[in-house]
């Protein structure tokens, strides 16, 4: 039979276990509550300024007339350029690493390098964009320079997520194709890549969502918040939603802070749509397998 001391000890251990579980639960709740508080603050503050007029107008010296048209258009332009530049290179690099690369010092260097690039602060990419695209390539403070800079930023993310998608393709598929006499290229491009494509696309969309929220590298490339036109070509100056938010939030007038909240709301909606698309793609893909 259990002594009284042992029973006390067990009760104590149970109690401390429960207490710890509660603390861990509270910590988890903290993150979620903050998320709710943040979204709540943006919605409550921003809803007043958020209407169709706000989406259709350019920024203005008069807060009641200001809108995010230039930022929204710029974000779409920049994202398109980012996707067009980073997607082919990133996916090709991933295919090489997963399906072609021999195990040499070089392929290991490429892998390590991509891991390191993924950890470089975004603002540092701005410096590279400034030197490479704005100056050396002569693109100036254009939407092209901005899009390419963010392309560099998301390149490692696209490589890493595409590799994961390729790795998820079962080897049996490759072996079956070889058994039917397919060449290596046929196996990769007719079986493996199509099978991995939804996963690659999902990763790319998530990477673009990351790029759409970036402001720091674009500040270095020379983009500013106060732009009252939309780009008509690759060489035009531009602004993006995050830069408009930055511009407005720094303005001490309360009306501008409201605009910053409304623009944040627009940005969050854009990101929500992108993420929902990615999740939808992933779910459909998982259903099919």
């Amino acid at each position: 039979m259990m002594g009284a001391r042992a029973a006390r000890r067990i009760r104590k251990r149970r109690r401390s276990g429960l207490a710890f579980g509660a603390v861990a639960g509270i910590a988890t709740a903290f993150g979620l509550l903050t998320l709710a508080l943040l979204i709540g603050a943006v919605v409550i503050e921003g809803a007043a300024a958020f209407d169709l007029q706000f989406l259709r107008s350019f920024t203005s010296r008069f807060p009641e007339r200001a809108g995010v048209r230039a930022g929204l258009a710029g974000t779409i332009w920049v994202s398109a350029i980012t996707a067009a530049s980073a997607f082919p290179v990133g996916v090709a690099a991933a295919i090489w690493l997963e399906e072609y690369a021999p195990d040499t010092w070089w392929s290991r260097l490429v892998q390590t390098n991509i891991q390191n690039l993924a950890g470089v602060p975004s603002i540092v990419y701005g410096v590279l964009g400034l030197a490479l695209f704005v100056r050396a390539m002569g693109a100036g403070r254009s939407v092209l320079a901005g899009g390419l800079t963010l392309g560099l930023l998301v390149l490692p993310i696209i490589v890493i997520s595409s590799r994961e998608a390729l790795r998820a393709v079962p080897d049996s598929l490759r072996e079956a194709a070889y058994a039917l006499g397919a060449t290596h290229g046929q196996v990769v491009f007719r079986q493996v890549v199509p099978a991995a494509f939804p996963g690659i696309l999902t990763g790319t969309i998530l990477a673009l969502a990351r790029a759409a929220g970036e402001a720091a590298p674009l500040i270095l490339v020379g983009a500013v918040g106060f732009i009252a036109f939309t780009p008509t070509g690759l060489g035009d100056p531009f602004t993006v939603l995050p830069l408009q938010i930055f511009d407005w939030v720094r303005n001490p007038q309360p009306e501008y802070r409201q605009l910053a909240a409304a623009a944040s709301l627009v940005l969050l909606i854009v990101l929500f749509v992108l993420n929902a698309t990615a999740i939808l793609l992933r779910n459909r893909w998982e259903l099919r397998r």
Partner: peptide, 21 residues
């Protein structure tokens, strides 16, 4: 997924949150 949403919030929006809230 809810916690990962926290990682997907753009940093300018966090900046707004820091300054205003």
């Amino acid at each position: 997924p809810l916690l990962e949403t926290l990682a997907g919030i753009p940093t300018v929006v966090y900046g707004y949150f820091a300054l205003i809230v």
